[in-house]
Every structure is written in C-alpha cells, then in structure tokens.
Design a protein around this nucleic acid. Structure first.
Lengths: 227, 227
DNA sequence: ATAGATATAGAACAAACGTTCGTTTCCGTC
DNA sequence: GACGGAAACGAACGTTTGTTCTATATCTAT
C-alpha cells in the first residue's frame, strides 16, 4: 500500500537495461532475452517484476520521464513574483530553455532518457502518450502562465506554439544527432557544439517572444545574428 | 541492365503497404505477413521483389524521401539572382519554410512519408541514415548558400543551426501530433491549426535571421507577437 | 507452338519470440 | 527446526518470425 521501494537489484538493473535497449532499438526491436542478458538476470525476471514486456516498456518510459523532468524543478525555481520587468523575464526564459536543452541532451547524464521519450512520442502507443501528457502537463501549464503573464501581446495559442517550437528544436538536436553530425561535417557532438546549439536555441526562442536580448549569453559566441 | 521500371502492381502495393506500416509501427513492430496481407500479396512477394525485409525497409525510406523532397523543387524555384534585397530574401525564405512544413505534414498527401523519415532519423539504422543524408545534402547545401548570400552577419555555423531548428520544429509538429493535440486541448489537427502553426514557424524563422517581416502572411492571424 | 524468363502461390523451415510453469533458494517469523 | 512468502532460476510451452523452396501460372520472343 505504501509503495515501499523494495529496490531489488534485479528489478532495477532490468529496468535500466530495458530503458537503454528500448531507447536504442525500440520496443519491437528489443527482445526480452536481450534485456535480461544485459541486466544479468534470467528470462522470467521480466514477467515476475513487471508482468509483461509491454508493462516493462511503459515503466521504463515512466522512469525516464520522471528522472528527466528536472524541468519541473527548473520551472519551480522561477518565482513569477520575482520577475519585475521584461528583462528579468527574458533572463529567466533564456536560462529555462538552456536548462531544458541540457536536461535532454547533456552528455553527463544517461543518454537513453531523452531518446526513449523521443521514441515514445513518435510511437504514439496510447498508454505511453497518456503517461507523457500526464507528466508534461503541469510543467506545460506553469510555463504557459509564465508566458501569458510576462510577455507582451501573448495569447494562449502563441504560448502553445512557442512551447512546441522549443520542444521541437531540442528533440531534434537529440534525435537527429547522426544526421546533423554528418550534414554539418563533424565527427560527433562535442561540448562546444552543444553549448553553441543550446545558446542559439535559447537566444532565438527569447527573441521570438519579442523580449529584450538576455545578457548572460554563452561566452564563446561571435555575436552571431544581429538585427 | 537498364533498370527498366517494370512497375508490377504487386511490387508497388507491397512497397506502399510496407511504408505505411513501418511508419506506424517501426521496422521491428511490423511483420512481413502483415505487410503482404495489407498489400493483398503473398509472403514470398517480399523476398522476390526486395530480397529481404531489411531491404524493403530501406526501399520504403528511399521512396518516402524522394517523394517528399518537393523541397528540392521548392529550393530550385528560388533563383538567387532574382533576390534583390533583404525583403525579397525574407519573402523567399518565408515561403520556403511554409512549403517545407506542408510538404511534411499536409493532410492531403500520404501521411506516412514524413513519419517514416522521422522514424528512420531516430532509429539511426546506419544505411538508412546514409540514404537520408545522401538525399538531404544537396538541398541542405543550396539552402546554406542562400542564407550565406542574402542574410547579413551569417556564418556557416549559424546557417547550420538555422536549418536544424527549422527542421526540428517541423519534425516535432508531425511526430508529437498526439501529444500536442492533448496538451493544447483539442481533438485533432485541423486545417486552421496547421495553417497557424506553419505561419508561426515561418515567421519566427525569418525573424530569427534578422530579416524584415515578410508581407505575405497567413490571413487569419491576429497579429500575434510584435516587438 | 514452344522454350525461357518473370511472377505468384503455398507449403515448409529453423530460429527467435513472449510467456508460463514447477522448482529451488533465501530470509525473517513462529 | 519448521513454516511461509518473496525472489530467482531453468526448462518448456505454443506462436510467430523471416526466409527458402518447389510448383504453377503468365507472358514474350523465336
């Protein structure tokens, strides 16, 4: 009843192995045998701890969603009443977008969180989408209120579009990694590229709202686009 | 030797059925039996016409890529020497982004093209990515040159970022359809929403380049964000 | 009319799949 | 020391998987 986190080693390692494999190859492309082999468990562990492969899949998505949503924390740290003027709002949103970006793509945290969510979004497996929406909605609403309150000429529809566009850009930098790398003629994502990309997305996103340019820009950027 | 397009009915219908199913449920989630059932063919048709399931998958991706890349046509229609000033450039890019958007998402054309490409991008199946990059590169380079030529203070890196961000937003509106619909509290994508979304993306993208606002905006938009 | 290539059909294959089952191991309680 | 439930195990289940094979139809050029 009390949701005691028994935290058996097996359950946890199966969950993580499953998350990594599902993220990499999808639900259909991953076999239960592969998962338990990676986790160092036996075949029956999946059905014992999760009931079925499907439910393990959903559980992995839930895990990734909740682990990744430091976004909720980031949003909570933005106190609306501490934003006095548009410059403050621009600053807060700039930092928010960057945090969102690195929360998704940062090389230091497990890479499969974002990728699995990516897949879950695309698959539109009904239960998965339901879980995603459920977890995303609170943050979505806080953000919308923030925009409506501090951005001039903001409408409900514009706020939604803004959310979509920010999410879209961040998702794409993660999901199309291989394509982007090849198209821009580099070897792989490095820290500098990610930094520049995050900055670009954040600056453009804030600019799209008609807010003043934030001061705390990334340090290495050659003053790129200027109007 | 001459690559005679025999265009058997069976081959074509299997290819299309495969495309739709792969787009919907991925490579691993779709069985050959399912495909041939949908296509009204027999099991051996796949191996006869395509050699294997994998090659059918790649062929479907190729089909989708080439069918969808009216983008190449759109780009070809933009004659760089006909762009006299920044206003012309803004106009051309605005139309380009919109065309790209509807090329991907338009309800009138088969929906699986975009979705399959989405999946292929995410899966980073090596051969698939190779095909994608191969098809995308020419358009990518033309677009980059266009930007470098007509947009002030444009760098190679900024142009690449701009491409990614435009692609990202468009991809997301397609792939996250279900999530967006639920998060914005509507029933489904309708023509008006798509129109507004395309306009938003196009306007913001042009604005991000520091170009003047294009005149030929969508008609139903309440003058949303204004700086 | 006939040989030869092209295409479809249906049966059969071994491998891999997710799941179930009965048993064994472990640990805290009586 | 015996009991009971949770956890892990390994074998087996019946399907479904992608692929292959042979036989049969359909056409085309000789």
């Amino acid at each position: 009843m009390v949701e005691t986190t028994v935290a058996t080693d097996t359950r946890q390692s199966v969950l993580i192995a499953a998350g990594e494999l599902f993220a990499e190859k999808g639900l259909g492309g991953t076999s239960v045998r592969e998962i338990v082999a990676k986790a160092g468990a036996t075949l029956s562990a999946v059905n014992y701890h999760f009931g079925s492969k499907q439910q393990l899949y959903l559980e992995a998505i839930r895990h990734a969603l909740h682990a990744r949503i430091g976004l909720a924390d980031a949003l909570a740290s933005v106190r609306p009443d501490q934003i006095a003027n548009q410059r403050d709002a621009a600053e807060a949103l700039y930092r928010l977008v960057r945090e969102f970006f690195f929360n998704y793509i940062a090389p230091e945290r497990p890479g499969w969180y974002g990728r699995l969510i990516n897949r879950a979004v695309i698959d539109d497996h009904p239960e998965a989408v339901e879980t995603i929406v459920e977890v995303l909605r609170p943050a979505d609403e806080v953000l919308r209120e923030l925009l409506l309150k501090h951005v001039p000429n903001m409408t409900r529809e514009s706020a939604d579009f803004w959310n979509c566009c920010v999410s879209g850009q961040i998702h794409y930098f993660l999901m199309a990694q291989r394509v982007i790398v090849q198209l821009t003629g580099r070897e792989a994502y490095d820290r500098a590229f990610l930094e520049a990309a995050a900055d670009y997305v954040a600056v453009q996103s804030v600019r799209a709202l008609g807010l003043p340019e934030p001061d705390s820009r990334g340090s290495h950027e050659g003053r790129e686009v200027e109007r």
